[in-house]
Simulated assay, not measured.
Amino acid sequence: MAETDPTDASDSMNRRRFLTATGAAATVGLAGCTSTDQGEGTGTEAGLSGEVVITGSSTVFPVSDTMAELFMEEHADVNVTVDSTGTGGGFENHFCPGNSDINGASRPITDSEVENCTGNDVEPVEFEIAADALTVAVNNEADWVDCMTFDELRQIWMGDGAEKWSDVRDDWPDEQIELFGPASTSGTYDYFNEHVLGEDTQHTTDHEPTEEDNLIVQGIQDSKYAMGYFGYAYYSENQDLVKAVEIKKGDDGECTPPSLDNAKDGSYPLARPLFIYANEESLQNEAVYEFTKFYLEKAESDRVKEIGYVPSSSDQVEENLSTLEDAVEN
């Protein structure tokens, strides 16, 4: 796998397609986790009102949820709902059908998803908003493993792969491996499958799948012989509960722990960019536009780092804002 600097703009930006749109977008409310009481706005846009619906990646969810809370503190008459549906699940079930304004994604949108969206007159506009260090974790008592190669991970997570730890290394315990991981609708699942297992290798179905990353943490914590993977933010807030595995890419590579610094400089093999996609028509709605602009500007802040991700660079923010303006001017 060729390493990519997660702070650079994704090549998938070239897949953006814009459609001249007029009028405000119709939004269908979802049962989101973030809401606010109606009241008089306190920010510079005191008269701003409306609704913004966000779906998608559980990895991006903490960022979107935080941005929603911060925005509603300034604009009490705007209701922003955030629903963790998984990247693929969000695109397929909510964003592409036109039922959400923004979809978080832990991997670039696929060509088939773009086709699905445009078939419904939804034109996705891509913004890279952070970088992540996808983290492989084991139980705190798993003292036999500190570092693993891509090949060893592949042996464990591929279909019909290793069943016991000793199947991977002879000196590891002769105990059944218990796997906890994302559901197949997750962008993290897709990323892991493509970059670790390989496009021609099928991900195992013999694992506990969930869109709730905290449940993955819980499963690993409760089983000495467990393993799972998730976004770094969920490891960051649970470092005392599970143990992160260092990753070595290739036999000659170095064992590198997941960290924000290692994700930023690209030395961590599982560093990846994170995205949000906005419906271009929704951006014609003032509330959606102002929230998206707020989100992109705040993506450079320490709040993103506190959540557990690498914030956008100033160059990335500038590029995102330029993309936003291009979208609303078309």
Rank of each mutant, 00 (worst) to 15 (best):
residue 198 G to L: 08
residue 199 E to D: 14
residue 206 D to I: 05
residue 200 D to M: 05
residue 200 D to S: 15
residue 203 H to V: 10
residue 207 H to G: 02
residue 222 D to M: 12
residue 208 E to K: 10
residue 204 T to W: 07
residue 208 E to L: 04
residue 203 H to G: 03
residue 194 E to M: 09
residue 197 L to Q: 02
residue 214 N to D: 13
residue 205 T to L: 09
residue 209 P to K: 05
residue 205 T to K: 10
residue 208 E to V: 11
residue 206 D to Y: 10
residue 216 I to D: 00
residue 206 D to P: 05
residue 222 D to S: 14
residue 213 D to P: 09
residue 214 N to R: 11
residue 202 Q to M: 12
residue 223 S to G: 11
residue 200 D to E: 15
residue 224 K to L: 11
residue 203 H to A: 08
residue 201 T to L: 03
residue 220 I to W: 03
residue 198 G to W: 04
residue 209 P to H: 03
residue 214 N to H: 11
residue 202 Q to W: 05
residue 222 D to E: 15
residue 204 T to G: 04
residue 199 E to S: 14
residue 205 T to D: 14
residue 208 E to D: 14
residue 204 T to M: 10
residue 219 G to T: 06
residue 221 Q to L: 07
residue 195 H to F: 12
residue 210 T to G: 00
residue 210 T to R: 01
residue 205 T to H: 09
residue 222 D to G: 12
residue 197 L to E: 01
residue 222 D to K: 13
residue 216 I to P: 00
residue 213 D to A: 11
residue 202 Q to A: 14
residue 205 T to M: 07
residue 221 Q to M: 09
residue 204 T to N: 10
residue 212 E to Q: 11
residue 196 V to R: 00
residue 211 E to W: 00
residue 209 P to C: 05
residue 207 H to W: 11
residue 201 T to W: 03
residue 224 K to E: 15
residue 202 Q to H: 08
residue 205 T to W: 07
residue 212 E to H: 05
residue 210 T to E: 00
residue 196 V to P: 01
residue 205 T to Y: 08
residue 199 E to W: 09
residue 199 E to P: 01
residue 224 K to S: 15
residue 221 Q to P: 04
residue 206 D to M: 08
residue 202 Q to D: 13
residue 204 T to L: 04
residue 207 H to R: 15
residue 219 G to P: 06
residue 206 D to S: 13
residue 198 G to F: 07
residue 197 L to M: 01
residue 201 T to Q: 10
residue 195 H to Y: 12
residue 216 I to Y: 00
residue 223 S to T: 15
residue 215 L to T: 09
residue 215 L to R: 12
residue 209 P to Y: 03
residue 197 L to G: 01
residue 222 D to W: 04
residue 204 T to H: 04
residue 213 D to V: 01
residue 217 V to E: 02
residue 217 V to F: 01
residue 208 E to P: 00
residue 211 E to C: 03
residue 195 H to R: 14
residue 220 I to N: 05
residue 217 V to W: 01
residue 206 D to N: 14
residue 218 Q to D: 13
residue 201 T to I: 14
residue 198 G to Y: 06
residue 213 D to R: 00
residue 197 L to R: 02
residue 209 P to M: 05
residue 216 I to S: 00
residue 203 H to I: 12
residue 195 H to A: 05
residue 204 T to F: 07
residue 202 Q to R: 11
residue 208 E to C: 03
residue 222 D to P: 08
residue 211 E to V: 15
residue 196 V to S: 02
residue 205 T to C: 03
residue 208 E to R: 08
residue 217 V to H: 01
residue 210 T to K: 00
residue 196 V to L: 04
residue 223 S to H: 15
residue 221 Q to N: 13
residue 214 N to F: 12
residue 198 G to V: 05
residue 194 E to F: 04
residue 217 V to P: 03
residue 211 E to H: 02
residue 214 N to P: 03
residue 221 Q to S: 14
residue 224 K to W: 07
residue 212 E to M: 06
residue 194 E to Q: 14
residue 203 H to S: 07
residue 210 T to V: 04
residue 194 E to A: 13
residue 194 E to K: 13
residue 203 H to E: 06
residue 201 T to S: 09
residue 198 G to S: 07
residue 213 D to Q: 13
residue 196 V to A: 04
residue 196 V to D: 04
residue 220 I to V: 15
residue 201 T to M: 06
residue 195 H to P: 00
residue 195 H to E: 12
residue 206 D to C: 06
residue 213 D to H: 11
residue 215 L to G: 02
residue 217 V to D: 00
residue 219 G to L: 04
residue 201 T to E: 11
residue 218 Q to H: 10
